Every structure is written in structure tokens, then in C-alpha cells.
Amino acid sequence: MKARTDTAFVSALGAMGRRHVKGLVRAGFDVVAVDPNPAVLDVARRELQEAGLNSGKLSMVDRPTGRFGVAVFAETTPDRLANFTRFLDAASAGRIFLEKPLAADPAEYDRFLDVARGRGVANVTQVNFIRRTWPHVQHLADMCSREKQFAMTLNGGAIGLGCMGIHYLDTFLCLSGDEMPAVRWATLSAETVKSGRGPQFEDFGGDFVLEGPRGRLLASLSAGSSANVVMTVRGEHFMAQVDYNEMQWKISRRKADSTMLFYRYGADYEIVEQGRLEIPAMDAVTEGWALGRIDLPVLEQALVTHRLLDEILRAGGAHPPYRFT
């Protein structure tokens, strides 16, 4: 098997795949891609040129073979398991990146792990739960680790629980030390969230409550709303507010020497941190990941978040397989 450790493989050149390509080229890789639509190669090369990158670094093949430095899977969810399996039947990679959600059918979740273990790549296969690496999420996780109990709320609109909401579920798991919560209550929006990728795809909005040993999540994410998400995290004596529309956050904390009675809620609190959220672009994430500067959750850990999503949807009355994009 010929080794091409300076070459990256990308499965699918849709909008997300082309972002990954930019990051990989910027990281110094030649990129070999597979996509059922050959015309998308011209689109991807044009976008590389517009970004000031060498478009000659990208080529397409019918099927990848040999050993690659890294491999990225960015197709729509119905095709991901088949493409992942097909790749590992004929090729390998030192690091593998899977987009989320892994599959629209929860019955496929464990098959990803079975395939990865069978090919010896379970520990190098990572899933794009990038928010765990964001500085403000890491800071909140550190604060929550010192709390006996904390509460997280999400309030917003039609983000789609499968395609974007799963990031917030993973954030909650990160804050709670990956303690699996129970789904105490869930109801899904009467309407579904439509997809710009076609009528064959749809997602869910809904309200739900999760309860773990140390953390509780209360979410209201309505499919009928266009509001962006505001997240709060409250400990015994702190309140963090994160506005993903204004891209601002702040943490208020009770003064350590305060003698004010607790029922004077909010009294003797001071803002201890605030500012603009610095969120890296996807191509920058891919570049850092490909160079080994960023590590994402490995496949087995990421499956916990996927199973939690499935439990919420089933509790709300949905039945798999779903139609995530």
C-alpha cells in the first residue's frame, strides 16, 4: 500500500467539504477528493483561487487507494457510513475526521465503531464536536467542575436538533464531565425544520429537560422561530450568558466577601469576564486538526452525544430513521 502522508482525502465537495479543502491545502497537503458530481471540482478550485490558495493542489478520483496523511468525510449523513467503510476497504489514514451527525439512522451509530475497530482506526477517528475546544466552553467546563450542581439553558429557534442542536448537547456533556443525563421530558415542535439541501431532508425543533448527577439542561428550541440561540450557565454563585447572535459573552460572580442575603438575588455580583466570542472558521479548524494542533472527541466518545440525541427525539415522539442532512 503506497504511503502518501502528505496527501489528504476528502469525501464530498459540498459547501462543508470545500471548507475542509481550504484548510487542508493551507496546511500543506495535496488533496484527493471523491464526489458524485464531477462539476463541483471547478467550483472548489475557483474557491481555492479566490482564497489565494493553489487550486492545483486539488484533484478528484473515482476511488481512493493507499495510505493518506488524513481523511475527512463531509458528505450528507445518509452516505457517510457507506463512504467511510468503502474508504477503509481500500485505503487508510493517519487521522480521520467525521462530520456530525454521523448518521440519520441510530442503528448505524455502533456500526461506525465496529468498522473503525475492525480496521484499527478507532483511536484516530475523531468527530467534529469542535465547540469543546472553544476557549469560552473550556472555561465554563472548568467552572462547572467545581460546582455541586449547575444549570444550563438554551433558548432559540430553528437550529435543527440533529444538525446544529447536537453541538449544544455535546457542550452540555462537556460541562458535566460527560456524565450521561436522563431525558426527563421532551416535546417536539409540530412543524419540522426544512433543509436548503432538498425536500428529502428535515430536522426537529423542540423543548426538553435533561438531568444528570451534577447538571441540568432546560432547552426551548422551536422549529417555528427564527431566533438565534442564547445559552446561560448558572452555578451556585455565578451566571454566564452567551449570545451566539451578538457573539458576546459575560460571566457575573458574587463577590467573595459579600454578606448580602441570598434572596437579594443578583446583589453584590460583579462582571468578572466579558467580551466578544472568538470562533475559528471551519477551514482554520481543519488546518489545525490536520497538523495535529487540535484534537476532537474520538468516535466512541462522540457516540454518547448521538445516543443522547436519539433518546430526546424518541421521548418527543419521533421515530428513526430520521432525515438529517
Rank of each mutant, 00 (worst) to 15 (best):
E300Y: 06
E47N: 13
D114M: 15
E278R: 15
A223E: 12
I271F: 00
M1H: 08
F84M: 11
A104Q: 15
L291P: 02
E300N: 07
M180V: 15
L261A: 14
A290Q: 08
A71Q: 10
L13C: 09
Q274L: 06
G14R: 07
L217K: 01
V61S: 05
A74F: 07
A74P: 11
T286I: 05
A158S: 10
A51P: 05
V21W: 04
H136T: 00
M239A: 00
E270S: 04
G56L: 06
I271L: 03
E47D: 14
S226N: 14
R216A: 10
D105Y: 02
L309S: 03
G28H: 04
R216Y: 01
E202C: 05
H237W: 06
T305I: 03
R26A: 15
G224Y: 13
R314Q: 12
S226F: 12
E108V: 09
A8G: 08
V229S: 04
T153D: 00
R86V: 00
G52W: 11
Y265I: 13
D203R: 03
Q49M: 15
C174G: 04
N128I: 02
E246L: 14
E179N: 14
V40I: 13
G165M: 10
A158H: 12
G288A: 07
G56F: 05
P38Y: 12
L98I: 05
V137N: 09
D30S: 08
A267W: 13
G66H: 10
V242K: 14
R18F: 02
A141W: 05
T133C: 05
R214E: 01
G165Y: 09
I251L: 14
